[in-house]
Computed example of a mutant assay.
Amino acid sequence: MNGFHPAAGVSVRAVEAADHAAIATVVDTAFAAAAHADGTEAALVAELRAAGGIACEWVAVEGTAPVGHIAFSAVTLDGRDCNWFGLAPLAVAPAYQGRGIGARLVRTGLAALQARGAGGCVVLGEPAYYARFGFAALPVLVCAWPVPPQYFQALAWQPLACAGIVRYHPLFGSV
């Protein structure tokens, strides 16, 4: 920590249309140095929005300026809609990273999904980071993409009614 407390000046709220351009900048800068990024993350968010593929999204703002963003979209489990969602992407502007903003975005988004009765959520990400929210590898859920299994994690809020291959919105991987 660098002395900044996220509650001091940074709040989390639902995304508004006026936030879209600034969110694209946050996503671009957050993923610019990431080894796993391909530079299409901001375009993916815009395409998902345009296609109605984002189930919910949240923005962290300092004053009125977006400094972080998270989106969730529906996923299918073995080809079926089981009321599960995928967390992607999570982005925090580099100058704001390491201050708990990403964690606040994740907790806010997960609470919103739970409140709407979601069965669970999956994420493709760093196991040590996402474990703090309850995510863990579930062998009965397999990512459609070839990834090391420990990086594909799930958080179930209801007993699993579906299992098998998890597929994200078709725009993932095509933008």
Rank of each mutant, 00 (worst) to 15 (best):
L105Q: 13
W84F: 02
Y129F: 08
A111H: 13
A137Q: 07
A111D: 06
A137I: 01
L90E: 04
F31D: 01
G98N: 08
A50S: 01
I70E: 00
D78T: 04
L110A: 07
G125M: 02
V45C: 08
R107V: 11
C143M: 05
A60K: 07
T108G: 09
A115H: 09
C143G: 06
V140N: 10
A115G: 11
A65V: 11
G119W: 13
A32E: 14
V92M: 03
R104Q: 04
G134W: 01
V140G: 00
F85H: 12
V67L: 06
L77E: 10
L90G: 07
L138D: 14
V106D: 04
F135H: 10
V27R: 15
A93V: 10
A65F: 13
R116W: 07
F133H: 02
A50V: 00
A32H: 04
F31K: 12
V61A: 12
P127T: 04
W145V: 02
D81P: 05
A95M: 06
A55M: 00
F72D: 06
R80T: 10
C143F: 11
G120L: 00
E47Y: 12
V106S: 09
Y129N: 09
A136F: 00
A37G: 03
C121V: 02
R107E: 10
G39T: 07
L138M: 13
D81Y: 05
L110W: 01
V59Q: 11
A30D: 10
R107Y: 05
A103H: 14
G119A: 15
A115N: 09
I101K: 03
R107K: 08
E57I: 09
A35R: 14
L124C: 00
L44W: 12
A115R: 15
